[in-house]
Computed example of a mutant assay.
Amino acid sequence: MNPGNIPQKSAARRGGRHWVVTAIGMPILTLSGWYAYRLGVRLEQCLAEHGPDSADRIDGVAGPCHPIMMSSGALSLAYLAAFAVTLIVGLVLGVIDGRRRRRFAYGRWVCVVVVGLTGPWALLAYALAYGLGRLLPAYRPTARRPQDAAGQQGWIEAIHLYQQLAAGEPPPVVYSPDFIGSGVVYLDAPFTYSRYYGTTVTYEQSSTFAYGRPAFVVGAVVGDLIGNSVARSRAASFAQPQWRDFAYARVILTPTTTWCCLGGLWLAFDHDVVMGYSVDGMNALLTFPDVEPLRLGGPSVWCHAVMFAYARFGPDQWQMAPFLHPVREAVESLNPRNSPEGR
């Protein structure tokens, strides 16, 4: 059963927030560099007027050019350090984004323009490193096995449950006196709950009327562009299909239905209408023809997968469910005589 192209993990919000921070910081850094340059010019004028000794401190008394020299030196040193940091960060992030096959600058083109105008060295370093990263082998994260620390006990219980059912024993029955449904209960455990869907989001654009010096007007326009870009990006990322309605739920599995109790409200998901079922780590994904996909997470997810397969496909076919392959493989490694290779 294939759930389709719905992501198994939480759909992350649009990345590249650091580009927004950089687009805000780069103009400040450029202004700092310009001010350091102006202080250097003032220092040269002061030294020409008062002489070289005017920048020294003689007998505890600072010369007239000494404060300018100290301010110019400190600001120049800070500017050079920030210049080196942005250059190195651009190289590192460029290689990382290129290897991970991300969009150039996460598609934040307004931020790219601002950085290109105020810090071209950083943008050039990022672009060169990004091209190098695209030439390198793509980064592929190592898939996690279900036997992680949090789900170890649940994984072991799922293996024992699989062995019990495979041996022909009846499924265990759980006593749930406050359950609103009828019939036997196979599983009663806490899970995390979320649904996958998109929505409509509106946002307001800001427009500032600025009057004054050109630098002030340009700064106001750039501020509006960055603010509107951030608002548009946030609205677009929140509107796109993603996992929502995160909550903790009590999950009960019966022979025909998976029930989720959310704050006293019971939601029923019939097994016979499930189009796809898959397990990724400690998350189970269920897709349906007419409602939003359901994701359940927790240590008991593999027990839910085993019992869902047994309830949906019956005692003769449940072991062939493709999503049970990790459990089936683990059981066969424990009982090699029952595996195809050992027969």
Rank of each mutant, 00 (worst) to 15 (best):
I180H: 03
G154N: 08
G183W: 09
A11Q: 10
L75I: 10
Q8Y: 06
V251S: 13
T199S: 07
R343D: 01
P293W: 02
Q317S: 11
P255C: 11
D148V: 05
W155P: 02
A62D: 08
R343H: 08
Y35A: 14
H50L: 13
V92P: 00
Q164T: 13
F288N: 01
T86D: 03
H271R: 12
Q317D: 12
A247G: 07
G107Q: 06
A309N: 01
G183N: 04
A143N: 01
D97K: 04
A236H: 12
R99N: 00
E329R: 15
V218W: 14
Y126S: 02
G281R: 09
P146E: 13
G33H: 06
Y248E: 06
P241S: 10
G212R: 12
F323M: 11
W302Y: 11
R102F: 07
S207Q: 13
A129S: 10
G151I: 04
G219Q: 03
A23L: 07
Q242C: 08
G33F: 11
E49Q: 15
Q319C: 03
V279C: 07
S76T: 14
T199H: 09
G168S: 12
D188Q: 11
C65N: 03
P7M: 11
Y35G: 05
R213K: 12
R101E: 07
P120F: 15
S206L: 13
Y35C: 05
Y203R: 03
A12M: 14
A82L: 15
Y310V: 03
G342K: 12
W34Y: 14
T86Q: 05
A247I: 06
F308H: 06
E49Y: 12
W259V: 03
P336E: 09
I226Y: 09
Y211L: 09
Y35T: 05
G63I: 09
L253W: 04
S300W: 05
Y211W: 13
C111E: 04
E204T: 07
Q319G: 00
G60V: 11
T208V: 13
A210E: 06
H160I: 01
L80N: 02
R195A: 02
L75P: 00
Y193M: 03
L285R: 06
G297W: 04
V85R: 09
Y196F: 15
Q147S: 14
Y310H: 15
M70Y: 05
Y203C: 03
Q164N: 07
I6R: 08
P322C: 08
R343V: 08
G4H: 08
L128D: 01
W302I: 00
T258E: 05
S54F: 11
Y37S: 06
F238K: 10
S300K: 05
I156S: 12
P64C: 04
T254W: 01
N338W: 12
E204S: 09
V217L: 08
P340C: 09
V113C: 04
M26T: 08
A129Q: 02
G154P: 02
E44F: 14
S71W: 11
E157L: 14
S339T: 06
T208C: 03
P120L: 15
S278I: 06
Y186H: 10
G16C: 13
R57I: 15
W266Y: 11
Q152C: 01
Q45G: 05
Y106Q: 05
F179I: 00
V61Q: 12
V21E: 09
A143S: 13
L123A: 08
W302P: 00
Y211I: 10
L31M: 11
S76F: 12
